[in-house]
Amino acid sequence: MNTVNARSAGPDRGRLARTGGVVLLLAAAVALPFVSSSPYVLDIAIQMLFYMALALGLNVVVGYAGLLDLGYAAYFAVGAYTLGILTKTFQVNFWLALLAAGVFAMLLGSFIGMTVLRLRSDYLTMVTLGFGEIIRITANNLKITGGPTGIFGIMAPKVFGLSLGQPRNIYFVMLIVVVLSTIAMARLGNSRVGRAWACLREDQDAAEAMGINTLGYKLLAYLTGTFWGGLTGAFFAVKMTAVSPGSFSFMQSVTVLLAVVMGGMGSVPGVVLGGALVILLPEMLRAVSDWRYLVFGAALVLLMLFRPAGLWPARHAGKEEV
């Protein structure tokens, strides 16, 4: 009797602490623009939110399904360009353009996914790397994307009467996007689909033997990730009011990947933390900015050697119970 009580009290207290922590963090996030009037602080905070959203999306591909995508910036770019072109050249409604950005990124993702996911999953790594370059070069050379200068003067839309041209408003919109994504991703990870992903990540042959449609689930993970990338890219275009090929380099993809790996592949709170850190740490180390990618590279190697589960590892549901 006693032992049962003690056991059930433990997780309850843990949950209470966790809920408290989340509430505090959220309150701090909401208060931030009112406490600090510095545009610099707000800009860093917005960048962090973008990387959190991207890391949450990439985490589905890398963390949940165990597929390494090195061209994630391509989908981010496709989303940004889609929104830019639709709203500026064709005067499409913002919400429609936002949806189109996600869907279009997903369509391209399905082309890559169906091509490559049938094969060894490490081929995906190289193909996405090449695809990232293809998208960047294409954007650089096409007329509709504005060539090397890109598209500028994207009108900030009004959402519920608030103009997204205001940094504070875009901050709150991104905060809502990140909070909703966090909840959605955590639930997705714990769902039937999430368990299927975990199973195929750990042992594909076993997963297949259990009747899991491995190709279908890999595609599903990949498409979820690309859709998220496209959506985030669309918000990015709104925030910057301009998109150009320079914003979508290979290093962009690497930074998002580092956020996922550092935080902990498959761990939702981990990748949110990782998204914050990949922006904060380089900001704090401005004086040695030449060394940034050297440190990034070393960090990836050292993390994989000594702490492959990241700074905030995923809890594997099921293991602790029983």
């Binding site: 390494l68 790594t125 690497v254 990947l257 990034f296 590279g297 960090a299």
Partner: peptide, 13 residues
């Protein structure tokens, strides 16, 4: 995926 990420890190390094 682990050695793949290491290899990427090594390349950057």
């Amino acid at each position: 995926i682990i050695p793949l990420i290491t290899a990427l890190g090594m390349s950057l390094f």
